[in-house]
Design a protein around this nucleic acid. Sequence first.
RNA 1: AGGCUCGUAGCUCAGUGGGAGAGCGCCUCUCUGACGCAGAGGAGGUCGGCGGUUCGAAACCGCCCGAGCCUACCA
Length: 878
Amino acid sequence: MTSISDRYDPSQVEERWYRVWEARGYFRAEAASPKKPYAIVMPPPNVTGSLHMGHALNNTLQDVLIRMKRMDGFNTLWMPGTDHAGIATQNVIERQLAAEGRRKDDLGREAFVARVWKWKEESGGLIITQLKRLGASCDWSRERFTMDPGLSEAVREVFVRLWEEELIYRGDYIVNWCPRCQTALSDLEVEREERDAEFVYIKYGPLTLGTVRPETKLGDTALAVHPKDRRYKQYVGKTLDVPSVEGTIRLQVVADAAVDPKFGTGVIKVTPGHDPIDFEIGRRHNLPVRTVIGFDGRMTELAGKYAGLDRFECRRRIVEDLNALGLIERIEPYRHAVGVCYRCRTVVEPLVSKQWYVRTKPLAEPAVKAVRDGRMRIIPRGWRSTYFAWMENIRDWCISRQLWWGHRIPVWYCDRDGSLHVSRVDLTECPQCGGPVHQDTDVLDTWFSSGLWPLSTLGWPKETPELKTFYPTSCLVTGFDILFFWVARMAMFGLKFAGDVPFRDVYIHALVRDAEGQKMSKSKGNVIDPLVIMDKYGTDAFRFTLAALAAQGRDIRLAEERIEGYRNFANKIWNASRLVLSNLDGYDPQRARSAAPPLADRWIKSRLNSTIGHVRKALDRYRFNEAASAIYQFLWHEFCDWYLEIAKRSLDGDDDPARRTRTQVTLIEVLETTLRLLHPFMPFITEEIWQRLPHAGDSIMVAQYPTASRANADPRAEREMAPIIGVVTAVRNIRSESRVPPSVELQVTVRPAGAEAAGAFAEAAPLINALARCVVTVRSAGPRPRDSAFAAVDSHEVFVHLAGVVDLAAERLRLAREIQKAEDEIAFVETRLARREFVKRAPAEVVERERARLDEHRRRRAKLRESLRWIAESPPTT
RNA sequence: AGGCUCGUAGCUCAGUGGGAGAGCGCCUCUCUGACGCAGAGGAGGUCGGCGGUUCGAAACCGCCCGAGCCUACCA
């Protein structure tokens, strides 16, 4: 056993155990089981994706929950899978084609889609491998892809049912169009970017107005002012002949409340074809739509001499031309937020086209209600308001995309009678006239299918046992960035089609940033690759870091030093275990039963018990950081720092074999339990060590999660242990301050406060001797020893003999400092107690505590003073 | 424009009404037989500012300053 390396080497451990766990089927959930269900559906990463910090955090937290619940006896399901990511995936293949000098139209739709599938089969699973590397204990046998047959069936079912209930409609509306991706985008898929622009004031006959988009001037069909704007009242209803770049145009002036009279000149040009507000104004006033910019971002034939120009080039030319005509009044610099495509950052062009929409209001209402009445909890609670704000102002959702990759809209049009048919099954002829049909060319927004994820992955629309057992799922773990994209939509669909929320809890975690607080992004070059980190520090250390930093409601700044710190923690555990393992010979748990356990054993077990309670409570409340630091604190600073040091003595002693056995039993019991407690956070190292320790069962993964109980709490042991730790610390402190080298054995006298304490100290003397490298004498009465330093531990007095070891001047200074500290404390408490209001109004126990505190410090001060006086009187030693 | 979050030790952050905490860093000491990825000890803070509520505020309320995020149809 002593041949175990003194450095923990994750590379020797992680992959091996993961394979074992998977092969033994530990990850698998049971469709039907007497055990209570606990289910999490994984937010499906893009099939094109590779593991980044966000995924790492997200999945670590899920794995912690799942592993904990699995050990706790639940029938756990962690449902994994990937998302077909329409635009992103199509982009990947288009780039490949471009490299070959081809475009997707060269292949045609069918061949293109076939190629995407081929790519998906060959390289789409990268992130899955990476999740395994992270230790994710998903039920891989249930892995799903949003385009799988079953999931596609769910998509069709939902589309048809929504259509039948008139919650889906089709129509010509203005949409966000990405000229690069050549598709419509939902409002959510448009992001805002601050950009500098020019605010151009153009003369429109007698009026002047400002715009940042002069090129849309060619599509103007009216001018608008606010109905109450006195300045322009006279123009409302009139038609103006306005000189412009291509001669004079006729524009009527309408009054519309959408115009802000305080902005610019209070007049706007109305371009219904290229602006969402103008589109609305146009509908209200029956204005025609003039489309002057095409789907390719170039000016159309209607743009006259500007036809064919790129929209931005056209903007420059128009300004030039207007200027030449003297129609520009002035130009101001202007900074505004412009809408860009979330995938390619191209400036979005609002365009009118025929698209499919979901009427969201009727779906959103139940989803709001579910959160309000607590059927779905959002944690931390603060995100509720964000959720409500969006849901209550929700707008209809454009679900059609002009892509080839995705779920094709299940609508067929008859080529003969022009009829439209929405169908669950593919149609080959018109159900009405038997004529030839063609399917709608658009596909659905990817979020339409991922919005069904909790349903479809469990088999819906079939009534599967999985659905029955695991729906609603227990918890969803996700980042706030997809609260609307995904969470809100799952809630709407879940309530609509399964009659209940998709998950009871939604835990929203932080964003991982770099050490400077910047969002990690490829373009900034500040990404930290989780795989590199795992190679360098080990997966356990990495996972633990993420959990330890995952405080609610705050972003995580990830600095490598932190990971290094937790790598050291892993090493600490390794070495502590090495100590235990190398002292196992002669271990016989039966023999230890009878004897009463010594104080230190009772103490550490009690501490462990309270740690378990703390960890469980923290995990129940999704306080991952609290759980992690409770384990860290216990394992390092109680078990290693104190108990192991104490245990070493008992293990070494040949004189008392029973004591050795008892210590072995406690060591193993505490270490083994702690490993189980830690396993959800650090699955690999805990398994590796656990397997080497005496244990029951095949794997720590399926061992029981520790439980705290009042029976295991031993407050008396904790009370008795405290002064012992206090004395050891006091002696070490004096040693250090008096600059006595660690090698010198000190003489120490303890004068206990009472008879009970005297016995305890006498019993603990050997222990104190070992821990503080001293020889302690317990003496209840008698004079204080000559030439000694003094410390007060609670009400016990500690004298450290320094005669001949060090001169006493330093000790005088030290005592003076201690006295000062005590006096500050006394003054503080006295002031508080002197206030009548405090004594009158504060709870009795608080007042009592303050009084006790005051007494305590006064006693302490008295003893310190006595010591100082004594030292001052003694002759200086030289 | 509206909304939200944050400002605590040199750094990163816990701590939601009763004695200011952790990790890292820093200083001193230790080649003690689990671990130097370690051990022991220590220094370091008017809890952003100002007011208010309270017997009592880092915490609750208001205002201000500073940082960040989200939502939005100011063209």
